[in-house]
């Protein structure tokens, strides 16, 4: 996957910072959502989101409440805590407080204008492709409109909402959006970021609304309840990522020495079938001539994968 180096690609030289939102109370889930294991990865949701943003951003911060700062899963990440002035004297909390606090805090540090790529930690289906699409669209818009600079926020239209609402928790905010968001918060006491973006869109035309790429329509699904989470964990049984190494005749057939494979299935028969379809292994060697190893040990094709293993299909060997 191509990674963006925004120092080269960002035409108005704005730096991009990342912000993972983990400050929610997670009341319906009953446990911090950032701390939950990602439904399909071997890391927690915060780690996944943080690493993802790191691919695109100059620096990534974690937005959380002050009382979360010493939590073991959080304490090693650079944090920005909610600032009192954006809580309407302690009356409100929520993602908008985290976003405004971060725009404010980062500006003090960097002085220049910048953009903030925001991602909630409970959107496990957002991936590199989706973020790259968002950033590219934002930068294209900035380029086209550099004079008037109309769009201060780029976000996806969330297809899971009833009337194509803007999705504020996987979006890019230019620093200049802060004063408008602040106005809406302070003067109208509206704290829902989705409503705020709708107002910015309808009244000021400041929002660049983007349709999700066709293959990523489910990217904005968020997981709020234990039941939802369990449902998504179950899907894990069907979606596995493994590292596959290729040697000898299989290496020649694939043209590569190793790769990560994300496939639907449970055991090595399923993985083999997936690869056979992709590379037509059976044109060069029949399956019954292959042995298979997981993490450097020979196993049967019935071996059940958990994910994250290293797999090698082994054509007849000839050492010695």
């Amino acid at each position: 996957m191509m990674r963006m180096n925004n120092n080269n690609n960002n035409n108005n030289n704005n730096k991009i910072f990342g912000l993972v939102l983990v400050g929610g109370k997670s009341e319906r889930m009953g446990t911090d959502k950032g701390q939950l294991k990602h439904p399909h990865q071997d890391q927690h949701q915060l780690g996944y989101s943080y690493d993802l943003l790191s691919n695109f951003c100059d620096k990534v911060f974690v937005s959380c409440r002050e009382d979360q700062k010493e939590l073991p899963y959080l304490k090693d990440y650079p944090q920005i805590h909610d600032q009192h002035e954006f809580t309407l004297e302690g009356k409100i909390r929520g993602p908008i407080v985290g976003i405004l606090s971060s725009l404010n805090k980062i500006k003090i540090e960097v002085k220049d204008d910048f953009s903030l790529l925001v991602l909630a930690c409970d959107m496990p289906y957002v991936d590199e492709k989706v973020l790259q699409y968002l950033i590219q669209s934002h930068q294209q818009q900035q380029q086209q409109q550099q004079e008037s600079k109309n769009f201060l926020v780029s976000c996806f239209i969330n297809p899971d909402t009833d009337k194509a609402w803007p999705e504020p928790l996987c979006a890019i905010y230019d620093y200049s959006a802060k004063k408008y968001l602040q106005e809406i918060l302070f003067e109208r006491e509206i704290k829902c970021p989705r409503k705020m973006l709708s107002i910015l869109l309808e009244e000021k035309k400041l929002v660049n609304m983007i349709k999700l790429p066709a293959s990523s329509e489910k990217a904005l699904l968020n997981i709020n309840t234990k039941e939802d989470y369990e449902k998504h964990r179950e899907l894990r049984d069907m979606n596995i990522t493994v590292k596959v190494k290729y040697y000898a005749i299989l290496g020649e057939k694939t043209g590569i020495s190793e790769e990560n494979i994300f496939f639907k299935g449970k055991n090595l028969h399923h993985l083999y079938n997936f690869l056979d379809q992709k590379y037509q292994f059976s044109n060069v060697i029949s399956k019954d001539k292959l042995r298979v190893a997981v993490n450097s040990r020979y196993v049967d094709f019935d071996y059940i994968l958990e994910g994250a293993e290293t797999v090698m299909f082994i054509p007849p060997i000839a050492g010695g």
């Binding site: 040697y247 000898a248 190893a293 020979y298 060997i317 000839a318 050492g319 010695g320």
Partner: peptide, 8 residues
């Protein structure tokens, strides 16, 4: 070695 080492 001839049975087990992954060498081609």
């Amino acid at each position: 070695v001839k049975k087990l080492l992954p060498i081609w």
